[in-house]
Design a protein around this nucleic acid. Structure first.
Lengths: 237, 237
DNA sequence: ACTTATAGTGTATATTTGACACATTTATTT
DNA sequence: AAATAAATGTGTCAAATATACACTATAAGT
């Protein structure tokens, strides 16, 4: 057997939802298309899957293209394949969810692609079903950040607790009590005090922390409070 | 613009992971292939996406084919697209996660496809990357059931609390305290006492409950305990 | 009537969360 | 140099939730 009879292929695209945090707002990296179709409209960064390319490799390629970065935090968000979603021809899009430290991106690469960082509440309407994708990504960010320590992916290697709090306030669009937040975060055991104080501050300088990466990996999945202790780090079949 | 130049299509398959619960064990509906490739091996139920078919419609079609059921609980689980995953030709598979009430399936349809219900801990090795898919689905079931009331999708319309407990014990492969479980479940307000008692019981007959479907929809997403009240049913941008 | 097995309800204790007060640090102002 | 403003860091109490465990109730078989 060397082929499947009577089955024809479908175009496979990859679209990337890229989140950043500028210290105040959650931002999306969007492109103003200088190519067809829908030239002049806003959209997610994307591209077609190449013939001998794995899906994750395609996402990595596209993300690197736009940001100049490797080793980005990426997850599959879903597949969008409605028959009419792309007016040019039927295209199924695999959507990836990416979190980056906004300070690390390459400005030249972003300029080259006519891309911009845009705050969630100022985002323009996007082409095709990209609005739907972004909506789902925001939901996912909120869901995931409530249960897993992914917030750190949006921050520089060293960060302060107030910074982290502003991030969560931006994600959930709600104020959080400073003292309870600090207690909760420190109790995770994920933060290591670097001993250094934040230099750029007009008032009391906050302590800079870094992530305990070993513990981060260990604790990434220990979230559920529904089941008894035995599940903590996974009784698995 | 009526086409994208220099891009060729890829075969798109759909695979379905179908969970059931027989009162004791979580089961998977798997097929012993009586067709090529890998005739004789075990695999998930699947098929190719049709030319004018949406992804979810394809999943619905395939699920109906095997179970005789409509209105099945379905979610996208992910896309598997490694270049070498299908030895015949490159195929990208969109995987769906389905939960059904095992009593409702059509035995003829299952027999026709040479399918069987198999307990998780007795499942055979599957073709291609289907083992990986199943592993992810089990993880997802555990994750999701800890946060959302999806367990009910695996039970008949009327069920007892001890039945529900056995289901959760099967999902997490761990014993749960009867009294705390009952209190927790009742406190969700999702259960309506039908007033009927379970007939098939050699001892004290348990009360039969049904799901409060209005409240179920309402509460489906109110799970996170990380953020303050304001999030309960979604402050959204 | 007695036994066995399962269902249903209650209660005391420990742990976690939520609301809030006070003290500390640093640049700027007086 | 002392006072002020703005932010950081630590502590405490009450309420809510989770955990562990004991007792009572019902149905069927002996």
């Amino acid at each position: 057997m060397t082929s499947y009879p009577n089955i024809s292929g479908i175009l496979l695209a990859i679209d990337c939802i890229i989140f950043g945090f500028d210290g105040k707002d959650i931002k999306l990296l969007l492109i103003k298309r200088n190519f067809e179709p829908q030239k002049g409209s806003w959209s997610l960064m994307g591209g077609f899957l190449e013939a001998n390319e794995n899906l994750e490799d395609g996402a990595t390629r596209i993300l690197h293209d736009l940001t100049g970065l490797k080793n980005i935090y990426v997850e599959q968000l879903g597949v969008y394949g409605n028959v009419q979603r792309d007016p040019v021809t039927r295209t199924v899009s695999v959507v990836f969810f990416a979190l980056i430290n906004i300070d690390d991106h390459s400005e030249e690469a972003v300029k080259l692609h006519n891309a911009s960082w845009i705050s969630l509440d100022q985002r323009p309407s996007l082409i095709f079903d990209h609005n739907e994708m972004v909506y789902k990504a925001i939901e996912h960010l909120r869901y995931k950040a409530a249960l897993h320590p992914i917030g750190f992916e949006l921050l520089p290697e060293q960060f302060t607790i107030p910074q982290l709090q502003k991030l969560y306030e931006a994600i959930y669009n709600t104020p959080i009590d400073r003292r309870n937040f600090s207690r909760k975060l420190l109790s995770t055991g994920l933060l290591i005090d670097t001993g250094i104080k934040n230099a750029h501050s007009a008032t009391k300088k906050a302590a800079l922390y870094k992530l305990d990466t070993a513990r981060y990996k260990e604790k990434f999945n220990s979230f559920w409070n529904f089941m008894p202790d035995s599940m903590e780090n996974g009784v698995r079949i």
